[in-house]
Design a protein around this nucleic acid. Structure first.
Length: 180
DNA sequence: GCCAACGTTGGC
DNA sequence: GCCAACGTTGGC
C-alpha cells in the first residue's frame, strides 16, 4: 500500500470569501461564468452540438471543480466567456441542465486529461452539463467589463485564471442589458 | 510545514 | 510570444 496522495481539495473560497455561493434560498437561481477558448470550443460550437448541450469536462482546478460539484444547480445560468480571444468577451448565456457528476475524462486512461490519481470510487474531478440558451447580439468584452464601475468586483476580474467563477444577480442583470 | 521550482492560464 | 499570477509538487 502506497502512501495516500494529498487530495487536491484546498481552495481559496473555503477560507471564507465565496462560501455564500454554495448556499441559496429555496428556489433561488444562481449565476456563473464559464470560460472556453473559442478555438477549442466556442459558443457557436455549443449551439451546434446535439441538444445544444455539452459536458463541461476536463477542468483540472480544484476551485472550479468545487463550483461545479457543489455550487451549480440545475436551472442555474452561466455566461459563456471566450478567453484568449480577440477580444475576450462574454458572448452568450447557457443553462446548467445536469448537476455535478464525475468527469469521465479523468477516469479514462486513454484520454488526454486522464488523472491516474483520481480514485473511480471517489473521483477527484467533476463536470456539469450546460445547454446554449441565447447568444448575445453584442458581446460584452473584457475591456467593456473593466471600464464599467458596476462590474468592478466581478470574480472574473478579481480572480483571474479560474475557468468557472460565480456571478452576482446584479452583475448578471447588468451584463444581460449590455449584451442584448 | 515551509518554500522554491515548476506548470498553467490568459491578458496584453 | 512574453510574462504575471497563482496553484501544485516535492525536497527538506
Amino acid at each position: 500500500m502506497t502512501a495516500k496522495k494529498r487530495a487536491p481539495q484546498s481552495a481559496p473560497y473555503e477560507k471564507g470569501a465565496w462560501a455564500h455561493v454554495f448556499t441559496r434560498a429555496k428556489g433561488e437561481r444562481r449565476y456563473w461564468l464559464i470560460k472556453s477558448e473559442p478555438d477549442v470550443f466556442s459558443y457557436d460550437d455549443l449551439a451546434a452540438a446535439p441538444k445544444q448541450t455539452t459536458s463541461w469536462d476536463s477542468v483540472r482546478n480544484s476551485s472550479a471543480r468545487n463550483f461545479m460539484r457543489d455550487g451549480m444547480k440545475k436551472g442555474d445560468r452561466a455566461f459563456y466567456y471566450h478567453s484568449n480571444a480577440e477580444p475576450s468577451a462574454i458572448v452568450g448565456i447557457c443553462e446548467v441542465v445536469r448537476e455535478g457528476y464525475p468527469d469521465s475524462t479523468a477516469l479514462d486512461a486513454s484520454h488526454e486529461y486522464f488523472d491516474p490519481d483520481s480514485d473511480p470510487a471517489n473521483p477527484t474531478w467533476f463536470m456539469v452539463d450546460v445547454k446554449a440558451v441565447k447568444k448575445f447580439r453584442t458581446p460584452v468584452t473584457l475591456p467593456d467589463i473593466k471600464a464599467d464601475k458596476a462590474l468592478a468586483n466581478m470574480a472574473l476580474i478579481k480572480v483571474s485564471r479560474l475557468s468557472v467563477v460565480p456571478v452576482t444577480a446584479e452583475e448578471w442583470e447588468h451584463i444581460c442589458k449590455l449584451g442584448g
